[in-house]
Amino acid sequence: MTALAEPPDDVLADYLAEEVRNDSRQCRRLLDIIRALRRGSHSCWLAEGEAWHVNLTKGRAVIESEFAVPGRARELTLGEFEELVQSWLRFLETPR
Rank of each mutant, 00 (worst) to 15 (best):
T57S: 08
D14I: 09
A5P: 00
H53T: 09
S41K: 03
R25P: 02
G59T: 14
P70S: 08
L89H: 09
D14N: 01
L16K: 02
H53P: 00
A36H: 04
D23V: 12
E6N: 06
S87P: 03
E6A: 10
Y15R: 01
A13M: 07
N22Y: 01
F91P: 00
V11A: 10
R29H: 15
E66K: 01
P7Y: 05
E50A: 11
R25H: 10
V85F: 05
E6P: 04
A17P: 02
A3S: 13
L12P: 02
S87Y: 04
L89G: 06
G79V: 11
E64A: 12
M1T: 15
V20H: 01
E83R: 03
R29W: 08
L89S: 07
S41W: 02
A3K: 00
P7C: 13
L84G: 14
H42T: 13
S24D: 11
E75A: 11
V54A: 13
D23E: 03
L84C: 15
W45A: 10
W88A: 11
C27N: 07
E93G: 05
S87K: 05
R39P: 06
E93D: 09
R96N: 07
L31Q: 06
R96A: 13
L92G: 07
E18D: 11
T2C: 07
